[in-house]
Each structure stands twice: as C-alpha cells, then as structure tokens.
Design a protein around this nucleic acid. Sequence first.
DNA 1: TTGTAGGCGTTATCAC
DNA 2: GTGATAACGCCTACAA
Lengths: 349, 349
Amino acid sequence: MLVKLGDDNIKINSKKIAQLAGVSRSTVSRVINNYSDISIETREKVLEVIKENGYYPNLSAKKLAGKKSGIIGLLVYTGKSSFNKKEYKKISESLYYSELISKIIDAAEEVGYLVLVSYINKEGTTWEKIFANGIIDGAIVISGGKKFKEIENLIVSDNKIVLLDYEKNIATKTVATINPDHFQGGYLATEYLLKKGYKKILHLTGEIKRKTSIKRARGYLKCLEVNGIKVSKVIGGKFTEKSSYKIINDYIKKNKKFEFDGIFAGNDYIALGSLRALSEHKIRVPEDVAIIGYDNMELCEYTTPKITSIKHLDDYVAKKALKKLMELLNGERGNIEMTKIEIVERESV
Amino acid sequence: MLVKLGDDNIKINSKKIAQLAGVSRSTVSRVINNYSDISIETREKVLEVIKENGYYPNLSAKKLAGKKSGIIGLLVYTGKSSFNKKEYKKISESLYYSELISKIIDAAEEVGYLVLVSYINKEGTTWEKIFANGIIDGAIVISGGKKFKEIENLIVSDNKIVLLDYEKNIATKTVATINPDHFQGGYLATEYLLKKGYKKILHLTGEIKRKTSIKRARGYLKCLEVNGIKVSKVIGGKFTEKSSYKIINDYIKKNKKFEFDGIFAGNDYIALGSLRALSEHKIRVPEDVAIIGYDNMELCEYTTPKITSIKHLDDYVAKKALKKLMELLNGERGNIEMTKIEIVERESV
DNA sequence: TTGTAGGCGTTATCAC
DNA sequence: GTGATAACGCCTACAA
C-alpha cells in the first residue's frame, strides 16, 4: 500500500511528514537527502513516518530547489539528411534503434535514472522543450549519422550531453561522443572469414559514398593486406535485399561463374539478398561460399542457413553512454569512445 | 539560436522576460498560457521578447504551480508471472513491445506530450517513483498479460491510467483499458483462409492454457461453425519455431500424410516452424498448404515464401491509448476498448 | 542537532 | 487589461 495518500486523499508532503514525526521540514529534508548532521533517533522516526505514509518527495519541487531530477533525456534523431530540410522520421519509423533504446532505458534504471524519450523533429518543438524544461539533468542523443552539427548549435552549451552516433564519427568539443567502429567491424568480419579458410572474399556493400561503407571497406582492405591476400573486390549498391540480390545475380549471369568463396556483406539485408541469389544458382552456403552479415538483425536467426553477423554491442554502448553521462553530471570532461564489436556465429560461414 | 541563454549565461525566466518587455510576470504568464484578457499589443510585444530570448517556461515550476507537465509515463510490465515473485524482465528483454512503445512515443508527440519510459520491476522502485514524483500527468501501462491486479492495488486511485494489455482481458474499474481482440483475430485469420478456398484448416497454437490461445481458438472454431465447415483440429504446443516444427514433422511421419490444406498458426514463430517442416516433406506453400501467422513480425518478410500474418495494429492501439489518456486527463471516465486487427497479405496463403 | 526564513519559477487570486 | 501577492514543495543558508 505504498503511494497511498492520506485518508482524505490529501497530498502528502514534507510538511505533513514533519508534523507527524514531530520535527521541522528541514529535518525531513535532511533525512531524505541522507545528511549526516542528524541524530539517529530522529532519522529513524522520520524514516518510519515516511514509510508509513508512502511519501516520495515531489520531483518538480526538488528540481526547482536546485537538485537533480534523476531524469535524463533520450533524443533519437532519425532525420533523413539535413536538419534544415526537416526530413526527420519518427521513432517508430526507425526500429533500427529499438534495442539500443531499450538497453539505455534499462541501463539508466540501474543507476536510478528515469528516461524521457523523444525524437528530434524540427526546430522549436520537442527536443527544445526537453532541453529547456528544467526537468532533465542531461541527455543522450542518438544521431544516426545525421547532421548533429546543426543541432549542436541550437543546444545550450552547458547541457550535459552524450552523443551516440552509429554512423558518422563526429569530432565535437561540446559533448562526449560514442562512435561506431566501422573500420574495426570490417576488419573483424574479414579476419573471421580468413580464419575459417575463405581466401577470395568479396565485399558487397551499400551506398559506397556513405562513411559507414567507406570505413568498413577500409577495414576489409586493411585486413586483406595484413594477411597478404591479393584478391579483393568491393561492389557498392544499396543497403537492401533487392539490390544485393540483383548484383549477385547479374554478376553470375555475366561472368558465368562466381569465383569468390566468401562474401562480407555490408549489412544483413545484403547478406540475405546474396544468400537468395546464390541459392537460386545452386551455390551452397557455406560449403561453396561463406556469407557474413552486419548488424545482427533478428532475421539472421530465421534464414536457411542462419546468417553469421557482426554486431555493435548495444549493451556495451548503452552502459558506456550512461557512464559517460554520469561522469559529465559529476563535472568530468567528455571524450570520444568507440563501440565494441562482436561476431555472432551462426551457419553461413 | 534557440534555448540560448543570456550573455552572462544567466538563466532566463519569466521575470527577465517581463523586465525586457516592460510588463509584469503575470502578464508574461497570461501570454504563455494564451489567456484572452490581454491587449493585442502587449501580447505581441511579449511574444517577441520570448522568441528573441528563446525562452521556455520551466516545467518543474509550472507543474508545481498546478499546471500539467505535458509528460506522461509509459510503464512496461514484462514480469514473467507473479508480481510478488519479482520475476520481472527489463524492457530490453521484451523486444516484443518495441514497436508499440515507439508508436506510443510518437502518438504522444503528436498531441504535444513527452513520454517517460520505464518498466515496472519490483515494489518500491521505479514505477512508484514515477507515480509519486509529481511529474507525470498520467500514464499508460503495458501489462503484457501479467498480473496487473497486483500492481493496481499499489497505484493511487486518482492516477490517470490507461491499461494496455495485449494478452489478458482484465476487467478493472479503476482504469481505462485497451484489450487485444484475440477472438476476432482468430476469426479473421480463419475466414481469410476460407475465402481463399482452403477448407481443411488446422489451428496450430502455443500453450493451450493461455487465454491468448483459448480466445484465438474460439474465434477459429466459431468461424468454421458459421461457415458450416465440419473439419477442425486444434493442436497446442509452444509459441516457438522449434515446437511447431516438431509437431508438424511428427504429425506427418505418424500419419504418413498431411490432410489439411491450411494452417492457422498461433504466432509467426509457429508459422515459421510449420513452413520449415512442410518444406522438408516437399509439401509446397501455398500451393498444397496455406499458412497464416500471427503478430506480423519482421521475419515474415524474409522467409520463402513470405508469411501472411495477423496484426494487432500498434498504430491504432497507440493512438487509441493516447486518446483515452487525454480523455481521462479531461475528467472523462474510462472504459474498455478492443484492438483493431488487420491481415498483412504476403505469399504463404 | 534542529528550526526559521527565503528562494527556486510558475500560476491563480484579487485588487486596481 | 494589468500588476502585486501568495501559494506549490523542496532545499539551503543561517540562527539557535
């Protein structure tokens, strides 16, 4: 029967608690905030009354009086390209971040924080409201590779912000950042294939101009170089199942053969399309050709064979982001960190 | 340059705005709250100063002064069974609700609300904090078929709550509820198969004791009855790919044939397992046997053939929940509503 | 160790 | 139509 209000349904506050405990409001405050200059008996008495009445200090008042609220903002920026063009997407249209968002909420809970989630849409609306409303202590911004710089200018400099960008690697002095290590991801994927005995590896990626693609490709090439492998080929397309299916299909028809024994796919959709194309040409996976995907989406579990994939550890990232934010809240300076990467082994390699 | 503080980085508040506009704080307040008893010139002048200085009223103060905060809580209860047993799960462990959660955040944004997301864990922690902290105006509780009753007792009666339960249909007088229409889902799925010409339909579901299963099965049976179909069979198992694969596989081996021409699967994993089992026995889908799943998970898109599935419209549910909550906030009474259902047509039927 | 008083930024009430 | 003033619930000097 907690949060139970008084019999007359009158809101309970520190004044009431003070009355019931026979002390002053400041004493109640001292107990709540765990101050030391207070006698043991008084503290226990107050705590008892607090518990009996299911009293929780009012957060608004607390925040207003200068304390932290224990609430952080989580802003998801799923804009398509330029911030000015307002080509933003709602959170629900970008389920890509679902898991990360959930992990952050959980990680926050672990350190006693609540999370106010919203997406950054256009100027003058939600996110401004969040930063200006005097509720949150700090915020984590998931930027999804979009132009954070444009947002940055609009944010008060003394806001405590951790930028979590899965795509671009933005250098910014105003906030702490966590960036994806695409190079490392590309390197690891390639190395994994090599270790498994595949030596002629094709890297089939999405839009080749995107930094994501470039960094992963560099990791791929570097790994081949380090291991003294001469055969390399990068084909760009789109990050879709359809695109990769067509590319592999056309390639085989044109060349009358498929000379690679491994494919490092830029993401799981690409892996899926490749798999379908190879299957239709009776090329077996992983016996003839191995495929490794990227992102470790759920669909990898439900293909035949199941797709081995590269994963940026959401768990790690979420905890890291929280830790960084807590550091900022404690006055420490922010810096840049990279994500941690893992290979989820399944059947396609 | 919004949210930009003054030159000296001094926090801007209504007092400052009042000074700059040459009016009193009350007048500023009137402008902010769109009150009518104010001259046009004064209003415009104040609005100008507000805009120039990127002023946003402090939410904590607003709430403290008795206004709504514009923040609602979203509590996800992913407990395994009994609330007392503390067998709760974190949000990230129940990705099943990811889409719904996102939709709710978006729907809230559309009516100018922010969402404080958390999960209900054990007594005395997060959710109590949320309900008692004087920040939220109301809350949506996603209960996932678990024992909401136990939570209900712990919630102050005058809290504005919309209960969103995808599994059980709980009758409760204290809150507005939105329940899943499993009966309707089962009916629609069956009807869809019949309309497509499949007449011998097997209903393969998960744990048969669960209300979810029972209601869907009733819908299935009712539909067959209405359409004068005599052939019916319900097999229970688990809501997993493995389970359904085994069931279909065993069934075919035992009976040396598969006499049904349609399968209504209790969820998409079951559909997937059935598909795999049938494929291995060279039974073609949908030529020989049609399969319809339930939940419309993303994986339906990536199977061969793609799985047709039943979907409770998250979009609809989210908007409905928000609308209900707004009604509660406006003093109207809560009642019970059902979810809306849709068939997502793909290739397996 | 404890109590008093003033302030955080807003809104509502009551004057004018 | 506008301006003082007292709340809202808490925290933090400062005083005792």
